[in-house]
Design a protein around this nucleic acid. Structure first.
Lengths: 357, 357
DNA sequence: GTTAGCACTCTAAGCATACGAGTGCCATTC
DNA sequence: GAATGGCACTCGTATGCTTAGAGTGCTAAC
């Protein structure tokens, strides 16, 4: 009994099932794929595959469908990379480079992935902590408020309004002059640093600065640090939710749980960060391209996502082996893995190229 | 035949149908509501209501369900305002005031509406054109780029990166000094103006400024104007899409079309702006509260929304009779209109109060 | 190791029946 | 004239039954 043919059968089952959405039997298989053997032989192989937990039958007299483990094996060893067509690539590139700012570019990236994969796209904004600070701006508003604007080298802009009831009293000289000084000092201190390193750098500034400015400086530093707080630092865009509805029949339990899971950004963020660090899930790191991570069905620890698979990859500059941000596609376990992987990877690559440098 | 009782019957039908999701017959009606008449009488009334196009029966031997026009009449004349409970109000207020910045506050508002109504919430960011400019910031990036940050008095921050290949040449003095001057001039010119009026004000600055700075100034002005361009100026957040799935059975045609419609921001924006100007759809403008607009089923011109109703109201400061932005809730035609209206109105009110002033 | 044949299983589809909720109408009552 | 009780009628849904077909597992032959 040839091991190779068994795997060929598994691949055929996965491909057919993904294409037709229906359990595939031994006869169909021999008809559609030229395996060179009879249905009976296939049946034997299928029995073995089922024994190995790679396929299963929904009910006794139905064809086979791949299990999560079957998909896993398919993705890891059987899937053939199918690069996008040249026109597709060009479309991606031009569409992305038309973006006017970060919001726009990431929005476009999401729409691209959603359209290419026919699934839900998820795009994570560049991590604040891993970004560098490009500029810190302080804008006084009225008499007792201060707008703190943080601009990263990845193009993210975060702002926070600061109530400074003591702005006028404690720093009577805090006209634009001394505020400008403070701004200049902070910017110098932050130059070239990553945002995660800022607290330390800023502390020094707080110490060096005029006594009168100290409380204000401390407040500003606290705000910036708070802005970088784990909870607030990540931001995610979802696109293509409508695609889910079109594929709703593919979810046994309805898409309620799936939508719920997707709506909880916490869940998504957890998922993404897990996938980043889980090396065993990384698949086919082609040369020159970041690895693509795939999570299949139950591998997502989340209850609402047991019937879904997630395909992600990093984009943007890579630092310390970790990419700055991630994007991916989410769909039913029975998805077109090669196509999804190719799309996600392509968009990520062009996105990295287009992003403000 | 009492006209009053007929309307009472309509109200009862709407309320029962919304509650049970099933066509309501004459018997049920007499059992659940004390109308003081027999089923036979109700049947006569129902025949009249059907004649008037206010109710219909899905099939010959089923109960009646309200038509879009039936809901319309219910909303306009029969719905009783049901204010939220005191704890609910307090919850809204505290939850909203915990927001740290505009993004956060509007996100919270969306989640509130979604949770209160059990439907999809839509929140429009304060219109840029109707906002005032609080501050315009110019940040040089590298040698040939300029980051233009526009901060409105409604708390919105929009940024755009400007490629200025001639920054170094055309304005060799364009160190921080002359840039600061330009910034100062622009800010002075813009003081107190609404963003829509900026182009005119800025043109003057462009004329007054040093010859060397002119091209740069023109470029900046063009960028700001472009940022305010109709297409880019509006931004919308959707929340609670998962709620749709839970109510998916209420949409005959599945929620595919609905999700598609919601995902097209253009559609939503059109809808919102139409509703703003369509006075005939405004319902019950209670004293001291902005009017709430309701669109029912086919009244939404959009194909995907024929089975959906939209409830919106303005929030934020009112200028020239128009609110600065809108928020609302979208659900199946068979929704709890009084509840939805109350929730939307309440959140809008507190939102207006909490927003940065 | 592969194949053909065959009995067996189980689902989906079709169909006929029965049930019941609800209506419309008419004759009757107040 | 409005409200009511009674009654025949409609029609969708649930139920039970049968059938067709796809697919399997097993065994014996190649």
């Amino acid at each position: 009994m040839s091991e190779d043919r068994r795997l060929a059968v598994l691949r055929a089952i996965v491909e057919d099932y993904v294409a037709t959405q229906e359990p595939v039997g031994s006869r169909m298989l021999t008809e559609r794929h030229s395996l060179g053997v009879s249905p009976a032989t296939i049946r034997n192989d299928m029995a073995a595959l089922e024994e190995a937990g790679l396929i299963a039958q929904p009910h006794t007299s139905a064809g086979r469908i791949p299990t999560d483990q079957g998909y896993r094996l398919f993705v890891d060893r059987l899937a053939q990379v199918r690069p996008l067509s040249a026109p597709q690539r060009r479309a991606i590139e031009t569409f992305l480079s038309d973006g006017v700012d970060l919001d726009d570019v990431l929005g476009r990236a999401g729409r691209l992935v959603a359209q290419l994969t026919g699934q839900v796209a998820v795009v994570q904004y560049p991590s604040l902590r891993r970004s560098g600070l490009r500029h810190l701006e302080l804008v006084p508003i009225g008499v007792d408020r201060l707008l703190v604007v943080v601009i990263t080298d990845t193009g993210r802009v975060e702002q926070r309004i600061l109530e400074v009831p003591t702005l006028a009293e404690a720093t009577p000289t805090a006209d634009d002059g001394s505020l400008a000084e403070l701004r200049a000092r902070l910017n110098v201190a932050a130059a070239g640093k990553r945002l995660a390193e800022l607290p330390v750098a800023f502390e020094q500034v707080t110490n060096e600065v005029d006594l009168a400015l100290k409380p204000l400086a401390a407040l500003i530093v606290a705000t910036v640090v708070d802005t970088l707080d784990e909870k607030n630092e990540e931001r995610i865009v979802l696109t293509g939710t409508a695609n889910l509805a079109r594929a709703s029949m593919r979810f046994e339990q309805g898409l309620g749980p799936v939508l719920e899971a997707l709506e909880e950004q916490v869940v998504l963020l957890g998922l993404l960060s897990e996938m980043t660090h889980d090396a065993t899930l990384l698949s086919q790191a082609a040369p020159g391209v970041g690895p693509v991570a795939v999570r299949i069905g139950q591998e997502n620890r989340h209850e609402g996502l047991t019937e879904a698979s997630v395909v992600t990859t990093g984009y943007g500059p890579v630092e310390d082996g970790d990419a700055v941000a991630f994007l991916g596609s989410i769909g039913p376990t029975r998805m077109d893995y090669p196509g999804t992987i190719a799309s996600v990877r392509a968009v990520a690559r062009y996105l990295s190229r287009v992003l403000p440098s």
